[in-house]
Design a binder for these strands. Sequence first.
DNA 1: CATATTTGTACCCTTTAGGGTATAAATATA
DNA 2: TATATTTATACCCTAAAGGGTACAAATATG
Lengths: 68, 68
Amino acid sequence: MNTSLSGFIKEKRKQLKLTQPELAERTGVGLRFLRELEQGKQSVRVDKVNQVLALFGCELGVNKKIEV
Amino acid sequence: MNTSLSGFIKEKRKQLKLTQPELAERTGVGLRFLRELEQGKQSVRVDKVNQVLALFGCELGVNKKIEV
DNA sequence: CATATTTGTACCCTTTAGGGTATAAATATA
DNA sequence: TATATTTATACCCTAAAGGGTACAAATATG
């Protein structure tokens, strides 16, 4: 999920034809945070990520690790 | 997952017969952090949570929200 | 029961996440 | 290609995450 979380959000955002500022505003997170999130930053807060994912009807959950 | 993340970790830890200090040391996170995590704190960092989940072969990922 | 072990809560302290914002780089559009 | 739009990077600043630790509450064990 290292790459997939950021990829997932970027992809979903584009599906909704939203810009980063628009998605940030709709989800109530800061623009800088959203950009770092889409950029793959790992040290982000779970609650903030969920705040964004909620717009897509998703949330963070525990998954089996798909080890190499 | 609000309750399930903390519950999952606490449950997995007990399965391995580990105390909080032991799990904290094994996963390399702080004891205070692990305790807050098991206590259901939401504003925790994704990378730190994954650090713990890795011991159980798991990680955080995007899931469909199981809304009420 | 008494006692040992474990867990939860409460501090202090340092680092940093995240909000805001400006600007450069990249991309899209006319 | 020139121009407008979007995105990435870089700053400042404040609130708070997380490490350490001490102790009370709860739980387990003799």
